[in-house]
């Protein structure tokens, strides 16, 4: 009972989209699939869904090739959102549920339930094009889960939502997991990964860069991070005198420091107190997923997204 990708490769002409990707998603897990779009995430998801065929390698679910699993096994929220613009919301959802062999009446019942839950019950008879982007996205999410799939594959489910809707969606997300669904999702919001995911895999240019449980990944770097805030001093210039410590992210509320493994974090605190400064925040932590992302990939996740657009265009032009 697991989703296993083994040595998947896929080329589009001269562009290598996947260069031997392997990872395993345990059943019932929330799994973060990280990396820019051009990194090969969408291609991997499409191969799992049998929309694309891999050049080599296998994707299996419960030891069976994924293309043999019934389509209703999967719930898919694609990177490119799409609804029939002139079709009514409820009708649209009933149609999609119907494709998964859910009778129209039952489909309508489930759709109403979800719409209610996302506070958009009033929009049931509105045409999709009349809805705001955020509301369209909620419809899209419902479309992906209405048939209660065993595995949810979601490309950037949280992008473009306001905080209230993010909370709603997160709740729905966790409920799907509690019902036993395995969830694979990609995001560039790293705090979301830390909050929701049990495991992650980071891919770059079609290769797995690192993977494992979020805890292990954060500890794997062998570095520590200190969050430090000092009353009345945002520059922290004196830190230059403390060996093995570097300011990686200065900020008005607090600064993030990178501390070498050999250095005891307490030396930083002591140095501050010795200078007679009032420390308002001091926190020792593992590096954030975001820092690891930058370290491994060399760019910020958002920058990758931009590059991914270019790479995706290149891939489809091939």
């Amino acid at each position: 009972m697991a989703l296993v990708l083994e040595n998947l490769t896929k080329r589009f002409g001269s562009v290598v989209a996947l260069d031997g990707i392997s990872f395993r998603v345990a059943p019932g897990e929330v799994f973060g699939f990280l990396g820019g779009n051009g990194a090969g995430k969408t291609t991997a998801m499409r191969i799992i869904l049998d929309i694309l065929k891999a050049d080599s390698g296998t994707a299996t679910w419960n030891d069976q090739p994924t293309d043999r699993a019934p389509r209703a096994t999967w719930g898919y929220l694609p990177e490119e959102r799409g609804l029939y613009p002139r079709m009514e919301v409820l009708e649209q959802l009933v149609f999609l549920a119907n494709l998964f062999h859910i009778p129209r009446r039952e489909g309508a019942r489930r759709a109403r339930e979800w719409l209610d839950r996302f506070n958009i019950a009033d929009y049931a008879t509105r045409r999709a094009e009349e809805l705001s982007k955020g509301n369209q996205q909620k419809i899209q999410f419902i479309a992906a889960v209405i048939h209660e799939p065993q595995v949810l594959l979601m490309d950037e489910p949280f992008v473009g939502l306001d905080p209230v809707n993010v909370a709603l969606l997160k709740e729905a997300f966790l409920e799907m997991r509690n019902r036993g669904a395995t969830i694979v999702f990609s995001t560039h919001q790293m705090e979301m990964v830390e909050e929701l995911c049990e495991s992650v895999v980071l891919i770059d240019r079609g290769r797995v860069v690192l993977g494992g449980t979020v805890r292990d990944v954060r500890r794997s770097t062998g570095r520590q991070v200190i969050r430090l805030a000092v009353d009345g001093d945002t520059e922290l210039t004196w830190l230059a005198e403390v060996p093995g410590v570097k300011v990686v992210r200065p900020g008005l509320d607090y600064a993030e420091l990178d501390v070498e493994q050999s250095v005891d974090p307490e030396t930083v605190l002591r140095a501050a107190l010795d200078r007679g400064l009032r420390v308002t925040q001091f926190l020792i932590a593992d590096p954030s997923i975001e820092d690891i992302f930058i370290e491994k990939v060399g760019r910020r996740p958002t920058e990758i997204e931009h590059l991914a657009g270019v790479a995706a265009a290149g891939a489809s032009a091939a």
Partner: peptide, 16 residues
């Protein structure tokens, strides 16, 4: 083409 330009195609292809 409507299905392609509205990008609903990929959703449908997940199901059919």
């Amino acid at each position: 083409v409507e299905e392609k330009s509205s990008r609903v195609m990929e959703v449908i292809l997940g199901a059919a």
